[in-house]
């Protein structure tokens, strides 16, 4: 059975739902919040700000050498060129995967994550297993994500401890020479921009 906001009897609500409803009611009655702003915030992170933004940044970097250079030099500005900026992406650094080097991003202390390009972090990124293990055994964690790297590949783990946020530029897959930017962006997964995945090949899409 579902529930709606106008329901008079809250007995169907779980304990946590009741607690959140109580909090929202008190804050609204006090006038601290505008309930309409809550709906806009939720819609923004559900439909407007997500990993497709980052995928467009990566695809642009793959096709446009000058853009890629700007992205590596000043990621905040280069990302803003595509219209993405602001909260939890105020200070961006892009790190590029190469045949000899793989980058992985974590926040061991909480859940710092580049919202303007990737949206809100997935549950696993915020979880104790990922945060505790990836700094210590990145290859073991990558294996759980189905990623096996050559033994001589360097692995750099970036622990996002301050307000700098990291975007991984995955390697462009082979066999994609004829693809345009939009088709390329479809190959760029969220996980590939965190470093726990690789970009997909056209055959995998």
């Amino acid at each position: 059975m579902g529930h709606d906001h106008g329901h008079a009897d809250h007995s169907e609500l779980s304990e946590i739902e009741r607690r959140v409803r109580a909090l929202e009611t008190v804050l609204t009655q006090k006038g601290y919040i505008d309930p309409a702003a809550l709906d806009v915030l939720i819609d923004t992170y559900q439909t407007k700000i997500g990993p497709r933004n980052g995928a467009r940044v990566v695809a642009r970097a793959w096709v446009d050498r000058a853009y890629r250079d700007r992205l590596l030099r000043d990621a905040t500005s280069a990302i803003a060129e595509l219209g993405y900026s602001g909260r939890q992406g105020e200070h961006m650094i892009a790190v590029e995967n190469t045949p000899g080097r793989h980058n992985v991003v974590v926040c061991t202390l909480c859940s710092c994550y580049p919202w303007p390009v990737l949206g809100l972090p997935p549950v696993w990124y915020k979880s104790a297993p990922y945060r505790s293990r990836v700094v210590r055994d990145p290859r073991g964690v990558l294996l759980e994500f189905g990623v096996t790297l050559p033994a001589d590949t360097e692995i750099r783990v970036w622990d996002s401890s301050a307000e700098v946020r990291y975007l991984v530029i995955p390697e462009r897959p082979a066999g994609t020479d004829g693809l345009d930017e939009e088709a390329l962006s479809a190959l760029v997964t969220r996980d590939s921009m965190i470093g726990t995945g690789l970009a997909r090949t056209p055959a995998e899409v």
Partner: peptide, 21 residues
């Protein structure tokens, strides 16, 4: 919340790219 390097938290459980909430 200071979890880096701590043992015994087990495997990472993944979730799909489109699951926000």
């Amino acid at each position: 919340a200071d979890l880096g390097g701590r043992p015994d938290f087990g495997p990472v459980v993944q979730d799909a790219e489109d699951s926000v909430f």
